[in-house]
Design a protein around this nucleic acid. Sequence first.
RNA 1: GCCUUCGUAGCACAAUGGAUAGUGCAGGACUCUUCUAAGGUCUUGAUGUAGGUUCGAUUCCUACCGAAGGCACCA
Length: 557
Amino acid sequence: MDTMHTAKEKLAAALRDVGVSAEPASIPIELTEDLSRGDFASSVALAYSKAAGLAARVLAEKLAGSVSSIEGVSKVDIAGPGFLNFTLSAQLVCAGLEAVRSDPDAYGKGEGQKGKKVLFEYTDPNPFKEFHIGHLVPNALGESVSRMYEFAGAEVKRANYQGDVGIHVAKSLFIQLEKGITDPTIEDLAAAYPEGSRRYDEDSSAKKAIDELNKKIYDKSDDRVNSLYEKGRTLSLSHFEELYKILGTKFDYYFFESETGPVGIAEVRSHPDIFPESEGAIIFRGEEHGLHTRVFINKLGLPTYEAKELGLARLKRSKYPFDLTLTVTANEQAEYFKVVMKAMEFALPDLQGKLAFKTNGLLRFAEGKMSSRLGNIITGEELLNDLKEKARGRATDSRAEDPEMLAEHVAVAAIKYQILKQAFGKDIIFDRERALSMEGDSGPYLQYAYARTNAIAEKAKGAGVEAKFDANTPASDVARLLIRFPAITKRAAELLEPHIVTNYLISLAAEFNRWYAAEQILDGTPAAAHKVALTDAVRITLKNGLWLLGIPAPEKM
RNA sequence: GCCUUCGUAGCACAAUGGAUAGUGCAGGACUCUUCUAAGGUCUUGAUGUAGGUUCGAUUCCUACCGAAGGCACCA
């Protein structure tokens, strides 16, 4: 907000008058947690009281005088040990509200990342394995940060990197071959991998056969294997695509380990100085950099995950000349990624500073970690269907024109909200009952508030009430929260933290619901025009905010 | 053993070094002849332990206790 910037400059100048030099940028000013204290606050008097040789409250008194006449600030209070609390004028708040409605689609957009080319990589399920609920986490987070960057002015591309080769494929094909399957169905695939994985662990002859099959997959030497492989791969990928559609993700690029492997091997072999040989494998010695050693090419000459990651970086670069590529990957890969990133700094110096990763937590039940290897999995599809069914039951008296679609939208909101309400890397303790209950702090709560604003807008239209802000109406807490949205989206994008948006939206929706419960909006008086306009501003902000989270915003519920 | 991350009410999460540590569930008391009750009002309840830095520490530092992840050919 410009007002906050002006306040910083005035405070810095006032500090100079008492013999303290401070840059405007270093003046602490923050949005208040509690609106009863004002719109923003500064602890500047506490921070500089020692330097000024004055008691904090005395310094606060002196500084308050210098900022009391800022345009748009209606009052400055001194509170507690010496905080300066700023309250914005109704006129300024009203001007902020006008901005919401003058260009609804743009409200909350910024230019913080303007012109940057960014490639986000997330979701990364493996063909031949299930898309389990754990994949929903990076998908929800990755999609949201992609949208936040788009909102901040960046040119964003989305990428999905999938393991279409590797031992998991061999485990699946081994079972399919054993069963004589020639045209696998989704069900066949779902059953084959867990079974193959079990056999691999329990049966040494099966393990041997699977390892050999794995080599055949890489060198494509067996036609029957090739055919089954192609069919399974295609089937898996098209199945994933159905989910992405429901989840609201559209990828620009797909990368596969079958492509990154060869590129990675070539890259690794061309840098023998960086990647020496040891015990038959090609490695990177991370100890020299405070990390640990990782194998890039194993003794069979096959690329490991690490070499493939190197190849992936090259391929990404050739597809899209990014300024930054950010990979969303699981927490348990954080240590590997540090090593891979360090190795890339040496092997791919042109990409230095352009590679980043962020790790997400697990979606777990009370019983413990989900594992598709153990077979006790819940797929993303199953979870969505469960939530959908529950949502259908909830929707008594629904006004939705397409109840089936609404149930799906509510299901997506329920699961995504659970993921996006907390900080990026944290595990999501998935309580099925809680997610299913959809009460209170939830995605459906946000959707419901949004639907309500639409209902009011429609009713106002029917009643012939024209929405119009009145600058003389005292600024309500709803209005004061509304004008914070651009500051919220900016911060969320800078920190790559969707939960900042989530928490803001839930407080906005709660404040709106409180206001709605206390106020008759269409009250038949001239004041209705302002209230309808305010409701409309809430509608726009919730809509844009939900979009940032990748949560669908149904017009009617 | 070493490295990384994390310990906030009964549960799940917030708090860019600031004020009385917020929110939702769950528990207790209310609230639909009113624009959508998937709503609203009131209420009980927390910073793992011990030090340190600071005007001020959930936040930074040290130690301890506890949890998760990683430490050579899986991803």
